[in-house]
Amino acid sequence: MKREKIAKVAALCLFLIAFNTLWAFGQNKILMFGDSITAGYGLGEEQAYPAFIQDKIDSLDLNYTVVNAGLSGETTAGGARRVDWILQQEVDIFLIGLGGNDGLRGIDPSNTKKNLITIIEKVREKDSEIDIILAGMEAPPNLGQQYTSEFRSVFREVANEKDVTFMPFLLEDVAGNEELNQPDGIHPTAEGQQIIANNIWPYLKPLL
Rank of each mutant, 00 (worst) to 15 (best):
R3K: 11
R3I: 01
V9L: 00
A10T: 05
A11R: 02
L16V: 02
A18I: 07
F19C: 03
F19N: 02
F19W: 04
T21R: 03
L22Y: 09
W23A: 08
F25T: 08
G26Q: 11
N28H: 12
M32L: 09
F33A: 05
G34E: 03
G40W: 03
E45S: 13
A48W: 07
Y49H: 13
Y49F: 15
P50V: 01
I53F: 12
Q54A: 10
K56W: 15
D58I: 14
L62F: 15
N63T: 03
Y64P: 05
Y64D: 06
T65H: 12
V66Q: 07
V67G: 08
V67F: 14
L71C: 10
L71E: 11
E74P: 00
T75D: 10
T75N: 11
G79Y: 07
W85N: 08
W85H: 09
W85S: 01
L87H: 07
Q89F: 02
E90Y: 06
F94Y: 10
F94K: 01
I96Y: 02
G97F: 10
L98M: 10
G99N: 10
G100H: 15
N101R: 07
D102M: 05
G103A: 04
R105E: 11
G106N: 05
D108N: 14
S110H: 12
T112N: 06
K113N: 02
K113V: 04
K114Y: 13
I120K: 01
R124A: 06
R124N: 13
E125H: 15
K126P: 09
K126V: 07
S128T: 09
E129S: 14
I132S: 10
A135V: 03
A139E: 04
P140N: 03
P140K: 01
P140L: 01
P141M: 08
P141A: 08
L143C: 06
G144I: 12
G144C: 13
Q146E: 15
V154N: 00
V158C: 05
E161M: 01
K162Q: 13
V164W: 00
F169V: 09
L171F: 06
L171N: 02
L171E: 03
D173V: 00
V174R: 00
L180F: 05
Q182P: 01
H187K: 07
A190Q: 12
Q194M: 14
I195Y: 08
I195E: 05
I196C: 02
A197R: 08
I200A: 08
P202N: 11
K205S: 01
